[in-house]
Design a binder for these strands. Structure first.
Lengths: 204, 204
DNA sequence: CTATGTGAATTTATTCACAGCA
DNA sequence: TGCTGTGAATAAATTCACATAG
């Protein structure tokens, strides 16, 4: 395969493929063609083949893709191969919901630490995690955590982001409706619920 | 202005512009140029001008855009002009977090009804809303609610979606990690948290 | 002189269509 | 034969660059 810059859109789709394949694997499916995977995931077959082709020859002509192998390959590309720990900042309703969210495990994430600034919450257990005081946020450095989830009010988000960066985090999943300023080496993905909802009426 | 098909990407950006403009308005800003808005929102100025140009001539050459007028225009385009009611299905942690989410108001949404199937929750008040029994879901027809938010476990999501469609809903914001099959006239936007998180390590 | 609005140029992403391998 | 892998063709989105209006 010749060199090609990998489209961002391709990376965005890989987790979608991964979930679909995981589902097929759970169903006992051994191999899958681009056409049947495409049908299942509501994307085009050519898209799937092209996306995979950027990374190598994963399939077998005349047969299709081996589900288990393909899952492993995608996990490698996305660097989900080994479980990595994440810290959750904010133990409110959203934080609590995230702690209970089953989706993280699929992607090899485990929330290892939870921080909050409310005395009422510090020390309490939520699920398996005990809420720690936000002033000890640099603890994440010692524990080698590189990834954090921000679930605090918008006003506090930038301050928390600064502290996380200082503590060595290089990936942030941000649920606060704010643009976060961080150094280039740190990747932020913001999930802004209202922003998604905002375009819904247009299509209705 | 000649006819142009409006790119989906433009629609996706309008809520981003809207939030930025709202912020500027709160700061007392009266008018804004594409360049300063672009700086503020971290997009390109040409993009902003092109996006707006699809809908008409909103600006004044040599001056810029009137913030208040522009907000009104975007709200019109997105059909956010009058507050519309929404139903929330699922009163778990996520549902509770969504009820407390301040972002909805900005976009003219108000959660008017909350449904759940858990006897422990039915009848309880969460914030201003009283949780109703999911078996009475068709109540939303009577109340003229056209928009719903699904915050139930993945397994239950499709069943709920079917019921919502039957009740006349034509827009769904889906938080369950499942593809929802609905008639073409119904618009679904799925926010899949794990899917966003899944591509974060790739960039780290 | 400033900043919009917009065709044209460019870049990016998707789809087509088919050669080539199992 | 069946399905992948991939250049070539097409479509979509972004950026450029400038004429034009205030």
């Amino acid at each position: 395969m010749r060199y090609h810059k990998i489209p961002d859109e391709t990376i965005r789709r890989l987790p979608v493929y991964l979930r679909g394949l995981q589902y097929l694997l759970d169903q006992g499916r051994q191999s899958v063609s681009s056409i049947s995977l495409a049908d299942f995931l509501h994307v085009s077959a050519a898209q799937i083949r092209k996306d995979f082709s950027y990374f190598g020859d994963f399939g077998t002509r005349g047969v299709g893709y081996d589900v288990e192998t393909l899952i492993r390959q995608i996990r490698n590309i996305l660097k989900l191969s080994d479980t990595s720990g994440a810290a959750l900042i904010g133990a409110g309703n959203l934080g609590t919901a995230l702690l209970a969210y089953p989706g993280f495990r699929t992607y090899g994430f485990e929330i290892l630490a939870v921080f909050d600034n409310s005395p009422a919450k510090i020390g309490k257990k939520i699920g398996r995690a005990k809420v720690e005081d936000i002033v000890n946020i640099e603890e994440i450095t010692r524990r080698g955590i590189k990834l954090a989830i921000i679930a605090v009010p918008a006003e506090a988000a930038q301050d928390i982001a600064d502290k996380l960066v200082a503590a060595g985090v290089n990936g942030i999943l941000n649920f606060a409706p704010r643009f976060l300023s961080v150094p280039k080496k740190v990747k932020v993905i913001t999930i802004d619920i209202a922003m998604e909802l905002g375009r819904l009426p247009y299509y209705m």
